[in-house]
Design a protein around this nucleic acid. Structure first.
Lengths: 210, 210
DNA sequence: AGGCAATTGTGAATTAATTAACAAATTGTT
DNA sequence: AACAATTTGTTAATTAATTCACAATTGCCT
């Protein structure tokens, strides 16, 4: 079987954004898209778009561009898991709820199947369309359902302990929103969204403009 | 007056993370830190840390490392605005609330001074420690207080319109959490946090590991 | 059908980011 | 007071990411 070239993070990120735009195009009935159209939507160069396209084999035609449906098919094939991926979320605070309601049915291949919290008001209820369990069942659930992906939205102090539990239970990837630089083994993929850093960056780069 | 070298985004990001660790060190009373300690905390190479340090002039001493307090001072001096920056947040849903409560007194130089929403239950109340006004006052407030930074946490459909209003009112930087690729003039800094893309990335890179 | 204009696909060139490497400096030790 | 062991600061080397540039296509127009 042929091994697909490994795709760098940056490209995967851009490809996900392309999909967003392509879905929009599809929804308004446009059948074709040019590299420069996609590029201007995503704020990259047309050359960059075409370069990213080399990771999969999409044939565009000069004067016409790429067929949107075909483009989307290729992205799905490249990026999406083959089977539906079950994801869990830990920490049903404001942030957790935002993510839950946000993700419901966003992508057919991604499904947040359970949320966990310690708060009795949340446990055993459906919150933002997702069933919420007590934290004490986290490990059991993760193991039995063989969950590979988790989203952490708990306060800073608890984050590392939860990450540890998850790793122990066989998690392969963590999307972390808690304001802590988690430590996980090198073979567990860790994506961190650090809101403070983002704001600080915004402030920094906003100065010295005009 | 000497012009400070322009610092690339990646370095600013790392420097913000360094600060996080340094504050931790400070809080547990450690006076010095080595480049390799900081590096392992932030998951970069020691050489990278030292390289980043070249953007400001911090003298470390062999065998001892960098003085934490001095290090923090230099970061503040480099990254933080000289005066307190007033920031506003638009969209007091779950995500907005999460950010509000999260940021209160997080950084002395950054202050979310107002939030905006259309919901009558939120307007004219203090939510997560922040005063909430009606959306219709957004432009007036932004102009009068000369707000330069805004955080957008509204649903997708409204995001672009709000961005337009903000730009018109003189905003210089936007931190956008709404799932839309906003269009703003090139001289307005735009930082986007795209939760969907992050999750998709996590899923993608979690496969093919063990 | 032939020519014009636009757009793709991809090596080559460029620029940016990271790592390697090592002299200079400093501390503690004998 | 010389030595050994570290760790810094920085230049050079390497690797990664982006842009350039242009031949090869294709559609459209006359």
């Amino acid at each position: 079987m042929m091994v697909r070239k490994k795709i760098p993070e940056k490209s995967v990120e851009r490809i996900c954004r392309y999909r967003e735009i392509l879905l929009e195009y599809q929804s308004i009935g446009k059948e074709f898209i040019f590299s420069h159209e996609l590029a201007s939507e995503v704020r990259v160069s047309p050359a960059q778009v075409r370069r990213d396209l080399m990771y999969f084999h999409l044939k565009g035609v000069p004067q016409q561009g790429y067929r949107v449906s075909e483009f989307l098919y290729e992205i799905d094939d490249l990026i999406d898991p083959k089977e539906v991926q079950d994801v869990i979320l830990i920490g049903v605070g404001n942030l957790g709820k935002a993510i839950l309601s946000y993700f419901t049915h966003k992508r057919p291949k991604l499904s947040i199947v359970a949320a966990f919290d310690v708060d009795a008001n949340k446990v055993d209820r459906v919150i933002s369309g997702c069933e919420c369990f007590h934290m004490r069942d986290l490990q059991k659930f993760t193991r039995e359902r063989e969950i590979k992906i988790a989203i952490i939205t708990v306060p800073a102090q608890e984050a590392q302990a939860i990450a540890n539990t998850l790793v122990e239970s066989g998690i392969r990837g963590i999307l972390n929103f808690s304001p802590v630089l988690l430590k996980v083994p090198a073979d567990v993929y860790l994506e961190c969204i650090d809101i403070t850093t983002s704001l600080e960056k915004t402030v920094y780069f906003s100065r010295g403009r005009r």
